[in-house]
Design a protein around this nucleic acid. Sequence first.
DNA 1: CCATACTCTTGGTATATACCAGGCAGGTGG
DNA 2: CCACCTGCCTGGTATATACCAAGAGTATGG
Lengths: 237, 237
Amino acid sequence: MSDAYYIHLTERLRELINDLDACEEGRLPAERTLAEHFRTTRVTLRQALAHLEGEGRIHRSNRRGWFVSPPPLDYDPTRDAGFNDYVKAQGRRPRTEVLLTDTRPHRPAAEALGLSTDQTFFHIRRRRFVDDRAVLSESLWVVPERAPGLLEGDYVSHSLWGQLRGRWGLTLAHRSLRLYSEALRAQEAEELGVAAGTAGLSVRRTIFDARRRPVEYDEEHWLHHALCITVDLENTS
Amino acid sequence: MSDAYYIHLTERLRELINDLDACEEGRLPAERTLAEHFRTTRVTLRQALAHLEGEGRIHRSNRRGWFVSPPPLDYDPTRDAGFNDYVKAQGRRPRTEVLLTDTRPHRPAAEALGLSTDQTFFHIRRRRFVDDRAVLSESLWVVPERAPGLLEGDYVSHSLWGQLRGRWGLTLAHRSLRLYSEALRAQEAEELGVAAGTAGLSVRRTIFDARRRPVEYDEEHWLHHALCITVDLENTS
DNA sequence: CCATACTCTTGGTATATACCAGGCAGGTGG
DNA sequence: CCACCTGCCTGGTATATACCAAGAGTATGG
């Protein structure tokens, strides 16, 4: 079976990671130190580290080191609970940074919502953290007619969907989701503090209200092991 | 920006892949050939190949070579259209292999469905192909009381869910889904003809009927870039 | 004619080594 | 006291090379 040395190495590292996790030490020793300790080269060691990264056990922070990964976040993209709420509900610490807001046309949003390509949107781009680790970069485009004055409101500390319901009485009735494993592109990767090409999960959502009027389109880019998607459905024949 | 040579190399390879795809040539030249052609080493070349693999552009077949990847399959885990139907609907060629059937208890299934751990299930393990490439390894456990005689039926060429509806009049009313990026373990990896640790997507489903009686639990392991998950929801408040 | 054995090709694993570039802390000068 | 600079530490990229193991086709012998 496990003829390859790096498989054995991976198991040894797994033990090390468990130990570190047990004593709440989040960081692994330097690659050179580990390679010397296991009497191998950095190349082979990095192969094992990459393997564990693929399993979601550890992650890297650009030129800072390797860190033990926390358990994934449970996330239901069909519920409109605010990010802050469900992160806190899982005993984790949420944070949100708004990177950009503007008002302009956006072709993919228009196409997804079935609007003309010169339709303008309220656009919000933000970055979200769990326990101070950036795990999500998202952009959302809201149809201004559905939520006039949105960008003047406090759209960060309160749930956006909660506001759409509360302030504008919208029912988010029809939703379309698309999930896809991707490699993070330069911009998202930079925002999440990882190398371009790191594995990610892309979530795109298109939302209409009860009268089938277009409400919102958004694109999320998650660090792929940061979340576990759960969906509960009733009566969808 | 792209100081690293392997980034440049990745772009060159991307062009090559497009060319190959255009002339319907699915296979890339050997690593040694490519390395020589781009005047670099296999190590660096493999780094670029791994990058493209992460993007889902190419995939490898154990010691046979690198191949251009087909576009992902659209898949809606909330619909009970049969695998064969929606693969064909997308102009692809489906195939299913039953690897194993038996009848015995299974703890995870029992727990997910809220049954006692000594509950027995009809268990089917199978492997599914798209255009002769194995993309999915799945195991499903059906509560025998819901579908007596299931294993005697032709559960391969017809949709399983179609049978549950047609032969036993079941409505698959309540479903719970769980999606998670994973590294394929030895067994699934072998069944899919890839190396252990290859990126995969795990889908677990728990299904109850209209009377909230447990019907089925299943675990799917997909090659992660083989599919794009789409979900359409109505009126889920 | 078929099965077996050989051999070539392919990717997979591994060592040894070098230099680059960004994070970060500690020192230094204004 | 603060801003900048310097240098060390880290992971990131790259070369050169070797041998292993499984796939695949070919030659060979019954």
